[in-house]
Write a protein that binds this DNA or RNA. Structure first.
Lengths: 233, 233
DNA sequence: CTGGACGGATCGTTGAACAATCACTACTGT
DNA sequence: ACAGTAGTGATTGTTCAACGATCCGTCCAG
């Protein structure tokens, strides 16, 4: 038994389900602190502090840090400590460059209707719709990412999935900064729905081009929201 | 000071240079054990054993294991231990699927002659040539991977670079099994040289298509060598 | 004002210890 | 003889306390 704990397993949120281990608990915990803004970009995250805060040993915290590093949620500078990455517009462009390579290629490579797997797409679209209706932009953003991860999952490649997972984790970092404005997710929910429809009707090439313009516009939206944010800061 | 050590820094080989830290030392050490065949696919790698063998604390070994896991050189089963991944033909296909998406996309996306960066390509080709002349297939394989990593590096994307690094680490795992026959690298050295020439003369589209057939043939070569290996095993 | 010595804080790493879990063996009951 | 179970040993997961190494900011001397 550890310290007070109290948090316990979260079940719903994370996909990986590494929670039975203490290091895994710290991973989701610190992950939430980062994406929820308690830890701001550029902040140093002290091992001792996290150890005290989460009630686990410093050594276990170190292990958790390696995992978070793995997902790009933490950067490690030797002998200096772990920091919440300072995401720059350049990073956004880099992330989207990879997305523009990966996602359309996956869609263009599809040959048959994998209906069961595609249901994840419509589920994500539905979730995004209802979240958007509630003006719940954080959840709309999560549903959005779930959509695109499910889209890449259609390729059935574990390595592509892993890459996409990391990209989305880094994107979440961006959203933690830009105050989730409606313009960032609102206009894109229906465009995802359109892409899902195209996929479900087997019109893969049309879906791919729709996806390409989607990504270009999404990148622009984030970039402008980003620069607006930087001015006020 | 640690234990006997003796190995020390290697300097030349790895690019990452994480060697000043003890965990980093263990990473390159165990990495070599794996790629050099001392650790076979499917083997369990005990924490205590590595700790004794490398002269560092078990806790440090655990950290090193997380890093190796990160590169796909180790898989971790909770409460059971770390294992050298058993690479299947399915993994090879998956790795090459990603390569076929990534590498041609990078080349096609090039717009200008980045001569200084392209010198890494010719350097890798030269190294591969001389290694092949010596029948030194392990080094020829390394130079081969260096070539393709340098090729992806032309895009100037840190995330693409990281992805490619992981892919090559996993490929090394394959080569550790198939006994580096000449047919695996020999025919491909000159094809890389051809691609490098096309790139240096700015004929990016031709380079991309050459790269595509290269990757298809390379995958086939590995796959056949692989199945031949499985029959004898 | 420049520069080097000092100190505090944090990281890097160790070693020992104990609980939890797994794999394997030996025993029991039918 | 054999299935199921309890026991046993080994390995992992995690904690704790400690110490050297390194970095950063401060203070003092020139």
């Amino acid at each position: 038994m550890i310290g007070g704990m109290g948090a316990g397993s979260r079940g719903g949120g994370g996909r990986g389900s590494v929670t039975p281990t203490a290091a895994g608990t710290v991973v989701v915990l610190v992950g939430e602190w980062i994406t929820e803004g308690r830890l701001a970009p550029g902040d140093k995250v002290s091992e001792t502090w996290v150890a005290a805060e989460s009630g686990v040993s410093r050594n276990t915290v170190r292990e958790a840090f390696r995992l978070l590093e793995h997902d790009g949620l933490l950067v490690h500078e030797p002998n200096r400590g772990a920091f919440v990455p300072q995401v720059t517009p350049l990073d956004v462009r880099d992330i989207y460059r990879v997305r523009r390579v990966l996602e359309p290629a996956v869609v263009r490579g599809l040959t048959e209707l994998d209906v069961p797997r595609m249901q994840a797409l419509t589920a994500a679209v539905d979730a995004a719709r209802s979240a958007a209706a509630r003006q719940d932009w954080p959840h709309a953003g999560s549903a959005n990412m779930r959509f695109h991860r499910s889209l890449v999952a259609l390729a059935g490649s574990v390595r592509l999935d892993a890459t996409m997972r990391r990209l989305m984790a880094e994107l979440r970092l961006v959203f933690a900064v830009v105050e989730h404005p409606a313009e960032l997710f609102g206009p894109f929910v229906e465009r995802n729905a359109r892409i899902a429809d195209l996929l479900l009707s087997g019109r893969f090439l049309e879906a791919a081009t729709a996806l390409e313009t989607y990504l270009a516009d999404s990148e622009d939206a984030i970039l402008t929201a980003f620069s607006r944010q930087e001015l006020t800061a």
